[in-house]
């Protein structure tokens, strides 16, 4: 591909420059969100209502959470196109257990464990079977999607017990999905930034030969990171499945693309080796802010998707201009 992998951490420069250059994409997206809020709220002040902020921030929380795991996968130079179907399968598992009368912690724990187990198999196929991750996950996408319909026959799950509906809870007035999103993002960020395990992910994605030479067990690490990604998808599933009082046995169309887009727009390099999960969480919030914002300013519903596409593209281009300029400065 056409961009050279940038090193994860650049040489020391002055504090601010270093901060801007290390978190450039996160800053671009945060600015985009602020500009969007400013413009939309000038046109329609109701946009800043507390309820609307809750809707925007919690609406895509499950996407933000799933994008955390996806970012880890992409940072190691892999990809997972089956995560949408996985979430659909895990939601059905969770809902079935809840309706069958198991304690809620079983219904919440099961998707996390099942997600880890399923994706550990995917990781093993990638690491030990030497199959590119896009191939394995394209295959898994078919298997999970078909399998879900085969097993459920298309019946929806209703009559969920009220205490199962975690995503509807609030703590200190803030919806549970927001807590999950923030806590998961912060933990994942710190863990990837400071733990040996987390830093090894960047090493694998940046230069796998060097990582191997440094003694990182690459194969085992890949299986582990896929399993962690599966577990995080399980957490996303809980938010997804407990938001309403019904669980659909189909998966929202193109969910995997939305999650991948959040990760890569958030600054995770598709070539591996760079990026943070803060960017992907901000990107998920940006998407739901764009979706709601365009409704608030009365963009014709027919043109909504075109404008969303254009805004995404503009964000990408601004970031690329910034990076290109930086590369030029660095090489001078």
């Amino acid at each position: 591909m056409s961009v050279e992998a940038a090193p994860a951490f650049r040489p020391r420069r002055s504090g601010l420059t270093r901060f801007v250059s290390a978190y450039g994409q996160e800053i671009v997206i945060a600015c985009a969100i602020l500009i969007l809020f400013a413009v939309v709220s000038l046109i329609n002040p109701r946009f800043l209502g507390a309820n609307n902020l809750n809707t925007i921030i919690s609406g895509n929380a499950y996407i933000a959470v799933a994008a955390i795991g996806m970012s880890m996968i992409i940072i190691t130079g892999n990809i997972d196109v089956s995560v949408g179907a996985l979430i659909g399968v895990l939601a059905t598992i969770s809902g079935t257990l809840a309706v069958a009368g198991y304690p809620v912690w079983v219904a919440w724990g099961a998707p996390i464990l099942a997600g880890a187990a399923i994706n550990a198999v995917v990781g093993a196929l990638v690491a030990y079977g030497k199959i590119p991750s896009i191939v394995v996950t394209l295959g898994m996408l078919s298997i999970l999607r078909g399998g879900l319909v085969s097993i459920t026959g298309g019946a929806w799950i209703s009559n969920l017990p009220p205490d199962f509906l975690l995503a509807q809870q609030r703590l200190l007035g803030v919806p549970a999905p927001v807590w999950f999103m923030v806590i998961c993002t912060v933990i994942a960020f710190l863990w990837m930034r400071y733990s040996a395990f987390g830093r090894s992910l960047y090493a694998i994605g940046g230069n796998s030969e060097a990582a191997r030479a440094a003694g990182i067990p690459i194969e085992r690490r890949i299986v582990e990171v896929f399993a962690i990604h599966g577990a995080i998808a399980g957490v996303a599933t809980i938010l997804f499945a407990t938001q309403l009082q019904i669980i659909q046995s189909t998966v929202p169309p193109n969910l995997e693309l939305t999650i991948i887009t959040a990760s890569v727009i958030g600054g995770v390099s598709i070539l591996g080796g760079t990026g943070t999960v803060i960017g992907s969480t901000l990107a998920a919030i940006l998407f739901s802010a764009i979706g709601a914002g365009l409704i608030f300013v009365n963009v014709s519903a027919y043109w909504l998707r075109a404008v969303i596409g254009l805004l995404i593209l503009i964000t990408v281009l601004i970031d690329m201009l910034r990076r290109n300029r930086e590369t030029r400065q660095a090489s001078r």
């Binding site: 043109w303 909504l304 998707r305 596409g309």
Partner: peptide
Amino acid sequence: KVPPLIATLGTLALYRG
């Protein structure tokens, strides 16, 4: 110099829109 995956993810939304 946008990686193809990102560029075409963006235009995927734009063209459909």
